[in-house]
Design a protein around this nucleic acid. Sequence first.
RNA 1: CGGGACGUGGCGCAGUUUGGUAGCGCACAUGACUGGGGGUCAUGUGGUCGCCGGUUCAAAUCCGGCCGUCCCGACCA
Length: 567
Amino acid sequence: MKFSNSLIPTLRDIPANAEIASHILLLRGGFIRQLGSGLYTWLPLGVRVLQKVERIVRDELNKKDAQEVLMPFVQPGELWKESQRWEIMGPDLLRMQDRHENDYCLSPTHEEVITDLFRKNVKSYRQLPLNLYQIATKFRDEIRPRFGVLRSREFIMKDGYSFHLNEDSLHKTYIAMHEAYSAIFTRLALDFRSVEAHGGVIGDEENREFHVLADTGEDAIAYSAASSYAANLEKAEAVAPRETAPASETLTKVSTPNVRTINGLVECLDVPIERTVKTLIVQGEDSPIGLVLRGDHELHEIKAASLPNVLSPLTFTKESDVRHHVGCNVGSIGPVQLQIPYYVDRSAAVLSDFVCGANEDDFHLTGVNWNRDESLRNSAVQDLRKVVEGDPAPDGSGPLSILRGIEVGHIFKLGKKYSHTMNATVLDEQGESVNVLMGCYGLGITRLAAAVIEQKHDDVGPLWPIEIAPAQVHLVALNVSQSSAVAGAANQVYEQLTTQGIEVLYDDRNERPGVKFADADLIGIPYRITIGERGLKHDAIEYQHQREVKIELPLDQVVSTVLRDLN
RNA sequence: CGGGACGUGGCGCAGUUUGGUAGCGCACAUGACUGGGGGUCAUGUGGUCGCCGGUUCAAAUCCGGCCGUCCCGACCA
């Protein structure tokens, strides 16, 4: 690949609309261009990266006997109505009609199509298990596309689906996919975690997310350094830190004029925030419901919304209604004598001598105790809060740490969710018709390419892992148009490496050295060979791996050294 | 959807407050010089100032509407 006849539009300036490393560097290195919000064109170097990511993914999946298919990007609305997701999906699903006014959508995922394919073509348990995948374009009309290709609307995803007669078979494939994903990310030399997660609209049986750790990640990951426990914060279980201390204070009503917030309460009464309790009021099925948390803890909406009688999605009760039901403003609510049902978070439930609202404007209670104080004894305790750094891990292995991660893969057991609604059955050994069990395995190809940069870059450019670099070697020939010696040597190295099957980006342009070096940095190919007249005079060719120290090699050893390093 | 910002040659920006013939840097073309970290000089090419409407003798600039892009948020008392 010669630079002089390639489209590699590197940028000197930082593009105005890009903020994070992967977005900036993919633009500046000439890998992508934006077409519209959440829509990107992949340029030649970018396509090479994607193809290599895909190659690794195919390789690892094929090892596990998954088979590749390719399904349509445009799908009939009928199928989505059948699975009932036409109604459930909301505006993320981009819908349209054809000339006959039939409903269609751009596929955000392919459960419906694959299930339809399966039910029309597989009839016997003898054909199971079956594991099919594709690498294809998806469209999701995201609320807010951002961070370039990290959260775009149109993107490339590997999505796989498996079919099974029984749970045991499903589990085997689920584990096999877990292994395949781990192998893929390991080959990319990524620092990643597989974590417990929420299933979302796909399904909420057993599932696992794969995250590339990076500060710019949109998700928070709680993990235990002492064990393999790791969970997305949206799933992570919060366990109570310690046993209840005995009550020592007496219940006292204190005046707290104009105190409406926990911070105000802490200041007013000079109590530690860990000994305060706040009560949030959300809409329930019959009446509003109180959620009681320690003052310094944050409500976990997903946990709260899944509680019995609590409305999902979680909706906070309007302040005027709070006064109607509780008799005070939202800053003075507390569990003592609360006139509506409430749940207490585990960590709030182990407090003693704590402070809470008195359900009367401008008053709070101090010295409150769950077990001693009559109206509190039968409080319902639930996990309501987000975990924080230092919380005990649910597996008892020690304190939790929190890191940020980019979700690049997600594997699910779907069970019979789709086989049931879409009537996908096989005949079992007894000749009985049974719904198959399914699994579903997603992996973001375009996102993964960006996530790699988020984790592997420096000030001047990406540091691509060799497996997905746009080329293996960047050959920089300095002043080629002036020096026939340089041109001769560079051409020779280029020919020899190419003949050996090495991918070389050969910068044969008539550009100044500074331009070539800057572009090489922006492109980020791992091995760089620099040939200039100065070194050539004493038979010295520069050779450098990423940003490490350059070494000098005689011309006749360059090719063999590269071959050695690449194998 | 709520809040904020922005939209001026390919890219990055100034000009808008106070209306008066559209500018800078980079890139691009040609030539000369230069030749190991985005070089210098000279001469050039390229823009209906996002779109539509209004005010005005005159609009990038003022007013109204629309479109687009980015950022923050999408609840925590």
